[in-house]
Structures are given as structure tokens and as C-alpha cells.
Design a protein around this nucleic acid. Structure first.
Lengths: 218, 218
DNA sequence: TAGATTGTTAATCGATTAACAATC
DNA sequence: TAGATTGTTAATCGATTAACAATC
């Protein structure tokens, strides 16, 4: 299979969010197997490893192309590459951190942006005590310059980790400046009037409440 | 409506995870409205605010009981209470932080556990430099004592934020010691053999990959 | 009362699973 | 070749939406 022939979406099929969210799980398992030196893999084997039916795996992959071979299965190395490409890992997306508090710290120090193909280029904060300094090798700029910097440098993703009260106003600035994606850590649902912007939420309080629900209901 | 009569699940109906994950959104909006002094609300109004069909809201709520009134709608204050109770917010769940690195820091400093009815009682770490100190008013104990402390004090929830390599071994200790829920920040899929333990994942890398996917595919 | 809105049943839509012909 | 496993079509299952009688 030639990766260059990769079609990201076949036949204008509508691809469900469920399917998309399974792709990172496939990828991670394939990475593990690759590191372990495994060369081939059937949908059946992968399914057992992830508690997913082989049917579903084949359906999911068939949204994007034909990556297997009858009687053989999938080549681990190739399939990894394909899924990485589908997920946009080779697009060299750039990101800025907006709000350099504790979560921002944690991301800069511990999150391997590289491993998902994203490059973090700078940070912005309102606190004059930290503006002008840097976190690791990420410089912190004043939030005053956010709009201009986004307009000029056109980063793809804004990691939004400002205090809740600022979530919507800052998001609006980002959208106006032309940001394409927002990774939203604010626990606030962003309300856009005219949104072509992609928003992906990491919502701690919703998540903990769901855990609390299931704990309450065995 | 009398909150004491609340039944958490009617008719042994199976409640879908989708429905459960919408409840925190309802609650948050109801909180806002309550603070703004709004007294009543129809499923239609709430639906417009959240971009959810009124049908779905009524279906979701009907999983748990009858909380509205024909011709009137829902009482904001009552419905808030009911949903909070369904989500287990008045169960006084306790939590421990396992791995007191940056994410742990961020949670202690900024996350309002109180607002979801959870009480954080202590933290554990392997780093001898911080064991014995505290973060805010949360004491940090040695991870050596984890199993014993969990067995004795029986916290409900473990917030798992250890390095990836330790995710599964530490999770196993927690389960053996009788933990009921794990809020998993490790980016690792926990594999339990005999799991009655509830796991709720916060997976940064999966989430960022999904954002990257949608950015790649307009 | 008349209008509004619920809770629920029925209809639709979408996602998952099963089955199987094609073929490596 | 024979066995294995794909990609896809069909069947099933589950979730969402629509419709409406009940009733505040």
C-alpha cells in the first residue's frame, strides 16, 4: 500500500465522531505492537486487544480506504502510518498556549506535543509578573498582543486555559484573529455565533460528575 | 416535587452513557439560570440554550423521574437539585490524588472539587523531596503507604496522575486496596482483568488528535 | 377555561454487529 | 491449493426525534 495514495475520506461518506474517536486508540495499540516488533495483525486480534468487535474496526478503517489484505490482515507499520496521516499528525500543526497558569505549566512540562505531531510555539498570559519570561523554551507574551500575533503568525490551534470568566471573550478574539481550532480547557461551553472554528473540550468537572454518577449507581 | 422521593433510575431502564454525559450540561445551565433569578424553564427553552432538542431533554429526564409539570415546565431550583442528586453530588465522595506532579498541582490549586461535591483528602507521591510536605492544605504521603491508607480510609475516588509507566501497576494496587473509582489522567488505557471499578478517562493526547483530525478535514 | 407543556409511545435515523462473497 | 481474513452489504440494535394524549 502506498501512503501517498491515501484518501482521507471515501465516497463523501459521512464519518461518525464515534469512529474518529476510536482512531487514536487503534494508533496507540499499533505503536505498542510496532515497538514490540509485531509485523502483521488481523482485525480479530486488534479487536480482542481493545474490546472492540473486528467488524467495527473494519468498518471504521473502510471509511478511509482499503488498508488490509485478504487472508493476511494489516501490516502494522503501514497501518500506523495511515492512521497517523488520517489524524493529521504529519500536517505540522502549530499551537499557542493562551493562559499560562498551572494547566499550561503541566502541558508544557509533561505533554509530548511532538508525539501527536503538533508544535507548541508560544504562550500568552495577562499576568505582568510572567510576561517576558519563558516556560521551558516557550516564551510568554502579553495577552494584549494575542490578536495581532495570531493574525500575523497564523497558528492552527489555541490551547485555551484562561480563567472561566475570560473563556468566551478570549475565544472571540481568537476566532476573529482567524484561529482554526480551540482546545478548550476552561470548563466553559464556548458559544460562537458563526462558528467554523473546531472546538475540542477537555472538561474536568463534567468528567468528574460522570464518574460520580457511575459511583452512585454501581 | 419532593426531592426525598427521588428515584435514581426508573423501571430498571438502562440509561445510556450519552444521556448521563448530558446531565452535567443541564446542571451547569440551570445553575446559571438560578443565579440569574430565573424560576421556571421549559424543555423548549433549555433546548434552545444548549442546542439540544426538547424531546431529548424530556427523554433524558424521564429516565430518572417526573420532574416537570404540564403547561408550566420545570422549576429551575428543583430541577437543579434533582440533577445534582442524580449525579451523586450529595454523596460526599472523597478523593485522593495519586501522583502529585504538575497536573495534580493544577487540580489542587484551581479545580473546585467542592462544586461537584467531592472532597480531596490527601495526596501521594514517590518523590522523597515532596513527601511530608503539603500542597495547599493537602498533605503529601509516600506512595509506599498508598495501599494501606486506601484500605484504612476507604476513599471513593483515586485521581491517577502518575507517569505513564506506572499507570497500570499503581491502578492495580488501588483496585486491590478497594478503590471504587479512578479518574485517570495518565493517557494510558487501564486494563483490568476483574473490573468492577469505574474508570473515567481524561485523555489529552486522544483529544488533541481528534482536534487535529477535524482541522485536517475542515 | 384555553394555552402550554409535560411524559411517553411510535417513527426515524444512525451506529454496531453479523454474514459472506471475494481473494490473497 | 486450502485457510484466513478482508471490505462490504444486510440485519440488528440503540439513540434521537416527532407526535400526541394527558393535564396543569
Amino acid at each position: 500500500m502506498n501512503t501517498k495514495e491515501l484518501v482521507l475520506q471515501r465516497k463523501n461518506k459521512k464519518i461518525s465522531d464515534h469512529a474518529v474517536r476510536r482512531l487514536p486508540r487503534y494508533l496507540k495499540k499499533l505503536d505498542e505492537l510496532y515497538v514490540d516488533g509485531v509485523e502483521r495483525l488481523s482485525s480479530n486480534q486488534l479487536g480482542r486487544m481493545l474490546s472492540i468487535t473486528p467488524s467495527q474496526i473494519r468498518q471504521d478503517l473502510s471509511n478511509f480506504g482499503e488498508f488490509g489484505q485478504q487472508g493476511y490482515g494489516y501490516n502494522v507499520r503501514d497501518l500506523r502510518r495511515v492512521i497517523a496521516a488520517i489524524l493529521g499528525m504529519d500536517r505540522n500543526f502549530t499551537a499557542i498556549l493562551v493562559g499560562a497558569g498551572n494547566i499550561g505549566h503541566a502541558l508544557i512540562d509533561h505533554f509530548d506535543f511532538n508525539s501527536v505531531g503538533v508544535r507548541l510555539i508560544s504562550a500568552f498570559d495577562a499576568n505582568p509578573d510572567i510576561v517576558g519570561k519563558s516556560l521551558g523554551d516557550i516564551a510568554i507574551y502579553s495577552i494584549e498582543n494575542l490578536k495581532e500575533m495570531v493574525s500575523v503568525h497564523q497558528p492552527d490551534i489555541a490551547i485555551l486555559s484562561v480563567p472561566m470568566a475570560y473563556a468566551n471573550p478570549v475565544a472571540e478574539i481568537l476566532v476573529e484573529a482567524g484561529i482554526k481550532g480551540i482546545w478548550n480547557f476552561t470548563n466553559v461551553e464556548l458559544d460562537f455565533p458563526n462558528a467554523t472554528t473546531v472546538v475540542e473540550n477537555i472538561n474536568f468537572s463534567d468528567s468528574l460528575l460522570v464518574l460520580s454518577y457511575y459511583l452512585s449507581n454501581i
